[in-house]
Amino acid sequence: MGNESQGTTVLKVENLCKSFDKEEVLKSVSFELNKGEVLAIIGSSGGGKTTLLRCLNQLIIPDKGRIIVNDDVIFDDALGKENEKNLRTKRLHFGLVFQQFNLFPQYNVFNNLTLAARLLAKENNKKNGGSQEELKKEYAKIDEEATKLLERVGLKDKMKAYPCELSGGQQQRVAIARALILNPDILCFDEPTSALDPELTGEVLRVIEGLKSNDNTMIIVTHEMEFARRVASKIIFIADGVIEEIGTPEEVFENPKSEKLKSFFSKSVEVISQNS
């Protein structure tokens, strides 16, 4: 991999539309993402950021448009409804880290990471007629990977702890590791620090920043402007379901063109100054 993979298109979103009842939440959203890029999506509340991420992850099915990951068509309104099984495989192209972590409370940290991976390994083993031995080897690999990931998010010592015994920041770091274990092509974050106490946001943002590499493509919905500016290679500003502005952090932050973005920035500045 390395440098030659940089610049190849991983994600293509074309004319994505989604309505709830009569309300148009996404109005023909299109953008592309290259491998290793970090895309930050900003915008005021109700703009459709979460809806966009959920469409990518196929938690909700878009009404119109196309989503293509690495030449694999994830969604195309022309193709009609996918069956549950295909939907599952397509979902695996994406990982999603939720605002509310959504760890499984009855499993300890380690099992939160390995649960889905083990189920998948078991399923594949069965499908390929593999032996018990091979499955055991797969499990061992998964366990090893889980340990590595926990080390990476700085929680190896919490392996046996239950989610309720962790701080919000630690829980979110576990959730990040859990999303990584299935090796998604694109890792999405929906306001990963919004549910956290201010003093805990730093540790989570640092972990996310640490994931930046030529191989990890990420989409981060965030209200942390400083973070977006520093970490993202591309910024999308979305308002009322429309991409109002798209560009590099410099372009978007230094030279906002649309009135909506300008007023959004002035509002965020107000919020920041009110908080401090």
Binding site: R91, G95, F98, N102, L120, A179
Partner: peptide, 23 residues
């Protein structure tokens, strides 16, 4: 049970049955 538990299972590629019985 919060919707988030189902969704967490879904984005991890689990089937509906797996989500119900394992989560």
């Amino acid at each position: 049970i919060s919707q988030g538990q189902y969704e967490a299972g879904q984005v991890l590629g689990m089937t509906k049955t797996q989500i119900f019985f394992k989560i």
